[in-house]
């Protein structure tokens, strides 16, 4: 396991405005996928053979307080908020949404490694490896 060191940016970014009305937010689509991410998700879903889309969320854990959740979704939960991005269904639970508002999920390649990356403007500081974060 990699060591978990907290790196705080020198000048903390101003907190992002969080939409108060989620119904209104749906139009603004506060959570989006990059074309590449959507493409990969669609492929993984097809290969998996089931699932309606993906679920994004945050959990309180990890050394900097919050951690991302990225899972296949087999069905919506009643309270879920749904977005469609590049044809892929994205589900977010209302509790997570404030922390994810404005986030774009990208698919990136770093050397030999590849995977999904949260570009989240709410993050004030993150642990060294970026797996957990603070808002």
């Amino acid at each position: 396991m990699s060591a978990c060191t907290t790196t705080t940016s020198e000048a903390p970014a101003a907190p992002q405005a969080v939409p108060v009305n989620w119904q209104g937010a749906e139009r603004a689509s506060p959570v989006t996928l990059s074309a590449r991410a959507a493409d990969h998700i669609a492929r993984f879903l097809a290969k998996r053979g089931k699932g309606i889309g993906i679920r994004l969320g945050v959990r309180t854990s990890g050394c900097s307080g919050m951690a991302y959740k990225l899972e296949f979704a087999d069905g919506p939960n009643p309270e879920d908020i749904e977005f469609i991005s590049h044809g892929v269904k994205v589900l977010v639970d209302p509790k997570s949404l404030p922390y994810l508002s404005g986030t774009e999920l990208d698919y990136a390649r770093e050397g030999l490694n590849e995977g999904f990356k949260f570009n989240n403007p709410n993050v004030k500081d993150a642990c060294g490896c970026g797996e957990s974060f603070n808002v």
């Binding site: 899972e71 999904f116 490896c129 797996e131």
Partner: peptide, 12 residues
């Protein structure tokens, strides 16, 4: 930023 993979439901 670590690169993440999609987990099975409830298995993050």
């Amino acid at each position: 930023m670590a690169l993440l993979q999609i987990a099975e439901p409830g298995e993050s």
